[in-house]
Design a protein around this nucleic acid. Structure first.
Length: 638
RNA sequence: GCCAGCGUAGCUCAGCAGGCAGAGCAACUGAUUUGUAAUCAGUGGGUCGGGGGUUCGAUUCCCUUCGCUGGCUCCA
């Protein structure tokens, strides 16, 4: 008797069909699903499979379209295979390695006698288009691992062989389209013709298996979307995002410069930029004092002996700057912790004093590798809103939780979304297993009690303890570590920090390093991109500008600007002999929130006409009303 | 640090199969006294990132070095 299976599709009545030769495609057809053309794959009992996957028992099925995020990932992965085929075709002798789907697109890493260049991309794209036109089927097969090793050896693909040798599975899946066979878990779209819109974006070097001791491969990046419109929209978005680049806005808004002749990674803040960071720093000092932190301030240079004692010399020395004076070696601080340890140890501490929270806007220097510098976001000199908390082990979790509250409150003010990453013990580290366990638990429990989602980065912790990193995104959606909370059981030990407990005995305190903004420079960089340079009134280095119509209005304009300045409002003037439209345009490009127009009419009434940055005009108002408005907005931090 | 690309006026960029270095904006000078995103005219401005080489001649080709951009690695 013929076997039948029952297929369930959400929103349709179940269907009984013959199991003979039934696959995903046939099953969806049997249920007369719409849009077969846009089908990338199928979910069988929630598991994503090729459309060609066999179905031999009753199942819940669901189509996966190329327009969905899951479907797009499959399209992108398939595009990577097509690119690999095109590259193998154009560059005989090239060796393939890995090629996954990533956000918005895909990449594939190749090993070839020369590096690929941007000018190779159009040829590769054309060849890919040919392969797509042929609408070649992606054919999955499962083979014993040993057989796959022989297959890739025969094809002269040592990287694939290496990958296979590291696998423990007995059977592996391989996919073939046209002349190209790849080791791959899948799934894939049914045929190359499903790839409707792609573009190769750039080439880059990448180490095999992400290890800098391995060979440098040639990586080609591409993007792929369900249709040409989505691809065009994505490319346009990228162009728009590039206009928010803080390095570009930094010049346009006259915030800062970074110059070759000063040194890479060293920032010069111009008055507007310096005002911006002053506002931010003052704000952060107040927020810390409110939460029971005490101000501290350490020196910029500390004797090298001290850096040896703290462990920085051994573990971080290659990133430090050293200098020598009167035969005495000094190191410029790359971190602020040492002075804070010395403040703690300057006298005998009682458990009644704990926790101690030392806060410093500490400027540090770190010799970052040249290739990683990135405007304000990755600099060699920067200032941290840094604090070190010394507490009992019992207080540790409570302190971590209140830091998470602090982070949440501050990020809400700026309107930042963030995600958390918890890093565990690296191979090169110090401290006892017990200390590490205890610290990691405190971190994880605190995050979980806040109901915050997080990811774990195994082995990514600092050498002295585990950490929680708070990640923010820049205009191009790249993630950067800003706030960080790091446990440290090493430094209290090295500096022999103690407190006298209720039992009259000496105990070792626990310690937390933490920053909220992270680096003021980095945070500013992200902030500039976040607001696209149009800072809210409370942050705007210039809050208002007085624009005169004719020279007759200058004395009145002077009075107005003095009144505003006296009320604590940051005001500039533009009394030049130019047309109003010209002055408005310039103020607009400087993204000044309040443009204050004064002409004969305003002089008569003693009022001011206000144009906002968004183009709106407010009814004319008295200087007093204007001051109230700007102050009110600043207080609300809008 | 590694891979690829790029360094021309204050800024954005053109130019160059090797033959006296250009535009727009900005700056400066003058005219204009102006009502919500660019008034007009004129003037000055460059060791073509630095060093070396090839050449009669290099901004252009080659080497090297510094820096920048995008990745990779790193990121206490």
């Amino acid at each position: 008797m013929e076997k039948t299976v029952r297929l369930n599709l959400k929103g349709s009545p179940p269907v009984e069909v013959s199991a003979q030769g039934l696959n995903g495609f046939e099953a969806l057809k049997a249920l007369s699903t719409d849009n077969m053309e846009k089908m990338a794959a199928i979910k069988i009992n929630g598991e994503i499979k090729d459309l060609s996957a066999e179905i031999n028992s009753s199942a819940q099925i669901e189509p996966v379209y190329t327009t969905s995020e899951e479907g797009l990932q499959i399209v992108r992965h398939s595009a990577a295979h097509v690119m690999a085929e095109a590259v193998k075709d154009l560059f005989p002798g090239v060796k393939v390695t890995i090629g996954p789907a990533i956000k918005d697109g895909f990449y594939y890493d190749f090993d070839y006698e020369r590096r690929f260049e941007a000018k190779d991309l159009p040829d590769i794209e054309s060849k890919m288009a040919e392969i797509i036109d042929k609408d070649l089927a992606f054919i999955r097969s499962e083979v014993p691992r040993e057989e796959a090793i022989d297959l890739f050896k025969a094809q002269g693909e040592p990287y694939k062989v290496e990958l296979l040798e590291d696998l423990s599975e007995e059977k592996v899946s391989i996919y073939r389209q046209g002349n190209f066979t790849d080791l791959c878990r899948g799934p894939h779209v049914p045929s190359t013709g499903k790839i409707k819109a792609f573009h190769l974006t750039n080439v880059a070097g990448a180490y095999w298996k992400g290890d800098e001791h391995n060979a440098m491969l040639s990586r080609i990046y591409g993007v792929a979307f369900a249709d040409q419109e989505s691809l065009d929209a994505h490319l346009k978005n990228l162009e728009e995002a590039k206009k928010r680049d803080h390095r570009l806005l930094g010049r346009q808004l006259d915030l800062f410069t970074i110059r070759d002749d000063v040194g890479p990674g060293m920032v010069i803040f111009h008055p507007n930029g310096a005002m911006l960071r002053h506002i931010l720093e003052e704000f952060m000092i107040r927020e810390h004092l409110k939460r029971g932190y005490e101000l501290a301030q350490g020196p910029q240079l500390l004797k090298t002996e001290l850096w040896k004692k703290s462990g920085h010399f051994d573990h971080y020395g290659e990133h430090m700057y050293f200098t020598s004076v009167e035969d005495q070696s000094y190191g410029i601080k790359p971190m602020n912790c040492v002075a804070h340890m010395l403040i703690y140890s300057s006298k005998l501490r009682s458990y009644r004093e704990l926790p101690k929270r030392y806060f410093e806007l500490g400027t540090v220097h770190r010799h970052e590798r040249s290739g990683v510098l990135h405007g304000l976001i990755r600099a060699r000199q920067f200032t941290q809103d840094d604090a070190h908390i010394l507490c009992t082990h019992e207080q540790l979790k409570g302190e971590i939780k209140s830091i998470l509250d602090f982070v949440r409150d501050i990020m809400a003010i700026f309107g930042f979304d963030y995600h958390l990453e918890i890093s565990t013990r690296p191979t090169k580290s110090i401290g006892t297993d017990e200390d590490w366990e205890r610290a990691i638990h405190a971190l994880i429990e605190s995050v979980e009690e806040h109901n915050l989602p997080y990811q774990i980065n195994e082995g990514e912790g600092a050498f002295y303890g585990p950490k929680i990193d708070v990640m923010l995104k820049d205009a191009l959606e790249r993630s950067w570590q800003c706030a960080t909370i790091q446990c440290d059981f090493a430094l209290p030990d090295r500096f022999d920090l103690t407190y006298v407990g209720a039992d009259g005995e000496k105990h070792r305190p626990a310690m937390i390093h933490r920053v909220i903004l992270g680096s003021i420079e980095r945070f500013l960089g992200i902030l500039i991109e976040h607001y696209a340079g149009a800072f809210p009134v409370w942050l705007a280095p210039v809050q208002s500008i007085v624009l005169t119509i004719t020279d007759r209005n200058i004395p009145y304009g002077e009075d107005l600007s003095k009144t505003l300045f006296g009320a604590g409002i940051r005001v500039e003037t533009d009394f030049r002999n130019e047309k109003l439209s010209f002055k408005v345009r310039e103020a607009q490009m400087k993204k000044i929130p309040y443009m204050l127009v004064v002409g004969d009419k305003e002089m008569e009434t003693g009022h001011v006409t206000v144009r906002l940055r968004d183009g709106r005009n407010l009814p004319s108002m008295s200087p007093g009303e204007l001051i109230d408005r700007i102050r009110g907005e600043s207080e609300k931090r809008r």
